[in-house]
Design a binder for these strands. Sequence first.
DNA 1: ACCTGAACACCGTTCAAGT
DNA 2: ACCTGAACACCGTTCAAGT
Lengths: 167, 167
Amino acid sequence: MSRKDDILDAAERIVATEGLDALAMRRLADEVGVKAPSLYKHVRGKDEVIAALQERALRDFTAALASAPPGVRSLGAAYRSWALAHPAAYAVVTRVPLQRDLLTPGVEEAAAAPVLAVVGGHQERARALWAIAHGLVDLELADRFPKDADLDATWEVAVSAFGGVET
Amino acid sequence: MSRKDDILDAAERIVATEGLDALAMRRLADEVGVKAPSLYKHVRGKDEVIAALQERALRDFTAALASAPPGVRSLGAAYRSWALAHPAAYAVVTRVPLQRDLLTPGVEEAAAAPVLAVVGGHQERARALWAIAHGLVDLELADRFPKDADLDATWEVAVSAFGGVET
DNA sequence: ACCTGAACACCGTTCAAGT
DNA sequence: ACCTGAACACCGTTCAAGT
């Protein structure tokens, strides 16, 4: 079991430092100190490696959101700062199809819980809030805003629209 | 010049019907009826092919947004329906780094213009509106919402938050 | 001017063979 | 039980050679 953990740790390291595109089975094997075919004794394939990274990232992200102070504004701030601090992990969770059959049931819902809670359980508002946080972060990480854009101000406008004024 | 257009048309066809991942230079050469190395006489490389698709998609998307009836609600509807009708093109523009050095200057700004106009030229509101439209579409295309989610209602809530009530 | 086969340095994955 | 070299079917790209 420890060998599998070594592999996943190495994969996480590669993705964090060199990006998702750098994650190749041969490169991963090098990092572990073994030849590529050996990986397949511990892991079903690249899919399982990525699914494991998705699960780890999702749990970490959820914890960050759950420990944010109450209020739409600080939840938004927690969302953004986690994503900017872990851009590769955010991409793993968000730009790769979620492998739901390989995830522990409930992790996805757990991530949504803090968002749902902050809008008082209102589904549509929760989804809209989630979408704007994701949209802002995704566009920022994709370098879609002008480099002189005042994104703090944009977040302020966005969050205010969702009832962040009073918080 | 016509051979280059053949190549780009073929690339557009492959991406539209089989998705971005199916776009390989050998596969593209097959579609054109030539061997892969020949492509490089007409095109600098895969990057140029993708940049050309980005430009085409961006122009088409811009035209769709520009011809939407006035108002935040219908602009949102135009955004969503174009993206859902052309998911691969939306991905090309949104999930691949924009190759700005290979794009005609101004196409990116042109796409933003209708959004900026609908919020009366207010930069922060325009960016926030853009983010929520992109966030909703990206999450929907990535299959992130439950399949029974009422996304029309979610869009309504989102658009209302940005002053779509009166329109 | 355009096209080709062969090649290079890569992918993910399988499998027979070794310990 | 774990690891390996060789192989398969792929990538993007280059280049000498042909017409």
